[in-house]
Design a protein around this nucleic acid. Structure first.
Lengths: 195, 195, 195, 195
DNA sequence: AATGAATGAGAATTCATTCAT
DNA sequence: GATGAATGAATTCTCATTCAT
């Protein structure tokens, strides 16, 4: 029964690297050590494999989002936000294949998933945004960060996250963490209240 | 003779949206209003079309980089950096198809271009980095921005650029410019010297 | 499983008649009663079909060569040499398709097989030559044939064989055997010792 | 106007080496230094090129046959027959390309020429046969060669010629002439009258 | 659960040929 | 005469998929 899981693992990796159209069932079967028709014992077809993977990534992402939101509940904004970045970074790096595919699907969805992806993605971003916004609202109230519109701060922070997670693909783990810390320091220096 | 240009235009758009593997010569031919074999009068094959497009994008990018570097020569850091963002944004939006393909190729290069892209991309980033770094060095000296390591500021600024240009794909033009200004304001507030 | 054999049979016949380049996979598939893509379940492609056939022909040829060499071991030179011609003739006629292809490949190898064919062919000829030469050496010693250089006799006999097997393609079976006997008689009359 | 001749020369060579089906108009045009459509200024198409070449080869062959027949008129049979072989050999070697194509067309005619070739070829062989036969008839009468049926001697001699001219393709010029002389000596030793 | 055999659909590509220039 | 542009037809080959086993 672990064959199904192996198929999904292999397909995730391959879809991430070669894209949905660039990956053949033969590629996947080879990676698993089976023959292409065997995939049909577990999935309805190539599209179905992608759909299952996408659902899995989405589910995990939601779970991960819960973890992140949990993290945003108590403590100083500094710790919350930095924790958010680190948690997300760890997640992106530990699940490199899945996350690479996630980014690919978000940025360049294959036609079959286009609408579905756009929709679910916007939901994710909205949830994330709301949670981050709450952090800033509180931090402004607490005078932990400088005066300003929490909405704008959220926008900027999201941009930073986007930038970082694009970079997680360019740089190896060590270099990425170095950059993460530099970027965070620079960011926090600018947003924190100096007094 | 404009058929060659039309092929490249159509292919750029299609490669950007559907990917290299997801685009067929028939797709391209249909978009141009010719039949697939006619493409072979101008290119050696599908791969050659991509190669020519990639070269064109790279050339234009270099030209555009020169423009940007020019812009970074004189004036206040604030204007330079903001000008940089706006110029780049305008470029990305005015050449939406090319730039979408550029982003796709950088993030998810098809196997045939993998090594070539990685190499040329790193060169581009290095040139950009050096120019931005020079701006920060001067701005620190002039006390236009706060104290700090110019290298780290450059790292953070590059992350911001990366985030922005990933966002240029999610949001429509109007919303993107709104975000750009918000992000810039937030950023500059953090980096500039308050006195 | 006999489909593979059927493909090879059909391809042998077609390659022999229409040549490698003149034969399409569709021709072969039609002859077998399958569709062209099915060929790929058994061979890597058109070239691979030819390669397999060539190998088969070569293997059989070696086996046949062993039979012929066996025949050259005992008895009178007259019987040996005539037996050689008849055995070879029978082989060529019984495996008409294969042998026609063999001749075609030897005389007009397609580019893909050029070097491979030249090499393996020269080996075959050398083995044959050595065996025939031994027969003449012995026959000269035994005074079964006239005085002379065995090497030269071998050269002449090979020419005769070449001529005959080129003729096996021009004439139908009956006429060919008539010619074979005439040619043999004429030949033996000239080479044998008259006393 | 020499372009037409150049096309025929190039096509002859290419058809000989790669076969009719294996040769493209592009191959021919490249060899001439023109573009494929230019060929249509001189020929109706690919088939027409082959037809013209075939006609040319046939005409020359007839002319050459006349030369050979001329040679068979006076003198000793030994000189006539040896002269025949040498003249033919020289012809085959001096017009290597044409003769290779000739052999190819005779042995493996492309479908378009099948019937035409078979017919004209049999005529050639018959003329040749008649002339050679006359030589033997006279030589038997003159007691230049041993007793026997001139028809059978002709058959054997034709076989020798076939063998030789197949060999003209395997061996380089020098080696071929060596073999030619050996074969001739062996042959003549067998056929000539010893007294 | 797994696969060998087979295939329809369609991909890239080649090629002979046409035609306007 | 020569050729650039264009194409219909065909070729090799790939691929997702089906089905009997």
């Amino acid at each position: 029964m672990s064959t199904k899981i192996n198929i999904m693992k292999a397909a995730t990796e391959l879809f991430a690297i070669k894209g949905y159209e660039g990956t053949t069932l033969k590629d996947i079967a080879n990676a698993v050590g089976i023959k292409p028709p065997s995939i049909y014992a577990f999935f309805e077809g190539k599209e179905d494999v992608l759909l299952h993977i996408y659902q899995e990534i989405l589910d995990e992402h939601h779970k991960h989002l819960q973890d992140m939101l949990e993290q945003l509940k108590n403590g100083y904004a500094k710790n919350k936000l930095y924790g958010l970045l680190v948690t997300a970074a760890e997640y992106h790096l530990s699940e490199a294949g899945k996350m690479k595919l996630f980014r690919r699907l978000m940025l360049f969805p294959p036609e079959i998933l286009q609408s579905e992806i756009t929709e679910s993605f916007q939901k994710l971003v909205a949830i994330e945004r709301q949670a981050i916004n709450a952090v800033f609202e509180e931090a402004i109230r607490n005078k932990e960060v400088r005066e300003g519109k929490s909405e704008d701060m959220t926008t900027a922070f999201q941009c930073l996250m986007n930038g970082l997670f694009l970079e997680s693909q360019y740089y190896d783990e060590q270099e990425f963490y170095l950059r993460l810390d530099i970027i965070w320091e620079e960011y926090w220096m600018g947003i924190s209240r100096k007094d």
